[in-house]
């Protein structure tokens, strides 16, 4: 429990006086009938921070992401989010339209399977442009220029802009999904195993891209992964989950180099050397 107290303490840093967290989770709990999805998860996430949630399958990582993004209602606990106007609000008290607008503009969600985050039968350019049209952009030329620019940033050749994602490789689809998310300049990105199922070389390229984008755009990211190498490369902080509960938190290098809890030691010791 001491770890939790430390995590949820608001730290007033001299470097950034008075800054408030962007996202606050307080005692998030979700039951599936009598089975626990996740229990009593609390943390603060600040702007520009990347937090990895690690743990094996069934540890509650994905449930947590769904609670954070309001795709699922918590059995108890709450999620607070600081809006662009500086006011921190309880997501449960917003109406559906407000939440949808937030999800479309200020948040991104990168799914493990790009097909879940993309429309597979419309062109790459339209996939990116759609998010812009959803927030009221109407000028075709501007939408196309912005879309092309984002495809370039995620290293997709401009000549592929009119192709549908069905014709893309797995790595390209994942990069397209990222472009579709980032085009509205969100402040919070939630990622569920973003490199899962990709070849190692493709993974490396994607990780490098994500790392650069998160730093350049000062994104706040919660990335769920079972791959500790991904957590090490991408995140500043780690939260280790087991059977729905947080067992250890801390700086990424601290948790991975000096794991304290039995479960974390087991996870770290189970990495196969290349």
């Amino acid at each position: 429990m001491t770890v939790m107290t430390q995590m949820s303490t608001t730290i007033n840093m001299p470097e950034m006086p008075g800054e408030e967290p962007l996202l606050i989770a307080q005692g998030l709990t979700r039951w599936y009938g009598r089975r626990i999805g996740c229990r009593n998860v609390s943390f603060d996430l600040y702007e520009g921070e990347v937090m990895a949630v690690v743990g094996e399958s069934g540890s509650g990582k994905t449930t947590l992401l769904n609670l954070l993004s309001s795709q699922m209602e918590p059995s108890s606990g709450q999620v607070l989010y600081r809006m662009r106007d500086g006011v921190t609000r309880d997501l449960a008290r917003m109406d559906e339209a407000e939440r949808r607008l937030l999800a479309r503009t200020d948040w991104g969600f990168v799914h493990q399977d790009p097909a879940m985050g993309l429309r597979m039968r419309i062109s790459a350019g339209a996939n990116v442009g759609e998010r812009l049209m959803a927030i009221g952009w109407r000028h075709y030329g501007r939408i196309r220029d912005t879309g092309t620019n984002w495809l370039h940033q995620v290293e997709i050749d401009a000549s592929r802009i009119d192709d549908i994602p069905m014709t893309y490789s797995g790595g390209m689809r994942q990069r397209l999904q990222i472009a579709r998310n980032l085009v509205t300049q969100p402040r919070l990105i939630l990622m569920d195993e973003p490199t899962g199922g990709l070849d190692v070389s493709v993974q490396a390229r994607l990780l490098d891209l994500l790392r650069g984008l998160a730093a350049d755009l000062a994104l706040s990211v919660v990335v769920v992964t079972h791959d500790l190498a991904v957590a090490r490369l991408l995140s500043h902080r780690i939260m280790v989950m087991k059977e729905g509960e947080v067992v250890e938190t801390g700086l990424t290098d601290q948790v991975l180099d000096d794991p304290r809890e039995p479960y974390t030691q087991l996870l770290v010791a189970s990495i196969l050397p290349p």
């Binding site: 730290i11 840093m13 470097e15 950034m16 921070e49 500043h236 902080r237 801390g250 601290q254």
Partner: peptide, 11 residues
């Protein structure tokens, strides 16, 4: 706290 430590590593 982790956040303070990260800031110290930059500064």
């Amino acid at each position: 706290p982790p956040r303070r430590m990260l800031a110290l590593r930059r500064s």
